[in-house]
């Protein structure tokens, strides 16, 4: 069977899997960005309790394996009466796991904004909300986007794991086709290529574009 015949027969299935992978990626991306913002700010709170909650959350999710968290969300939560659909469980586990890593990036980004900026905003009598929104947040984006971009590529790779909790994504389809046809090189090779293409020609250019946009916003014509 030539490679073209293989694509002819299984290409559509793989493409459908790719669509699911992209769905998982987008959903968990949105979730992890929100979570990292919230917990990154909580880490910097002066309130000991809030800071403590954020630290425990971050250490817990960074300390255990994503796969364990995924299986926990899918197979153990039903014990507690919470039955999540495979897709939801996957997105939630990915979002929580990467949110913990992202929170550390956000925290470092906020700390990297020069102190003079806070003081100047203070001196100009801005309200705390306005200080964060108008002065600090626009400045943290150019700092946090490069590490966040790396993390997002890691997220794309991690989405492959949701196949193991029965989400029918690209990895799942590749495995399925492999078990029917035993054309391992073709189906896993194609899957690898698709992930590579998504990362190299869609995700990374998009993240670079965001970086340029953020840099331009604060008047830095970088990159």
């Amino acid at each position: 069977m030539t490679y073209f015949e293989f694509l002819n027969e299984h290409g559509v299935t793989l493409l459908l899997g790719t669509v699911t992978t992209i769905k998982v990626l987008v959903c968990s991306m949105i979730l992890y960005v929100i979570i990292s913002m919230i917990f990154g700010l909580m880490r910097l709170s002066k309130n000991r309790a809030i800071q403590g909650i954020a630290t425990v959350y971050i250490e817990f999710f960074r300390g255990t394996s994503l796969l364990v968290q995924l299986f926990w969300a899918y197979y153990v939560l039903p014990f507690f009466g919470i039955s999540l659909e495979a897709f939801t469980a996957g997105v939630v586990a990915l979002g929580l796991n990467f949110g913990a890593y992202g929170a550390e990036i956000v925290r470092a980004g906020i700390l990297a904004v020069p102190k003079g900026q806070w003081e100047a905003a203070h001196a100009l009598n801005f309200t705390p909300a306005k200080r964060i929104k108008r002065i600090i947040i626009p400045q943290i984006f150019p700092i946090i986007l490069p590490p966040a971009a790396n993390l997002t590529v890691e997220l794309l790779k991690a989405t492959a794991l949701v196949a193991l909790v029965t989400v029918v994504d690209l990895t799942f389809e590749a495995k399925q086709i492999n078990s029917i046809t035993w054309l391992s090189a073709q189906c896993f090779g194609t899957a690898l290529l698709i992930y590579y293409i998504i990362a190299r020609f869609a995700l990374v250019p998009f993240l670079r574009w965001l970086e340029v946009l953020a840099a331009r916003k604060v008047g830095k014509e970088r990159i």
Binding site: L161, A163, Y196
Partner: peptide, 13 residues
Amino acid sequence: FIRSTPLLIQLFF
């Protein structure tokens, strides 16, 4: 290439 593809599929491969 190795860095932007999932470890899981590399294992299967």
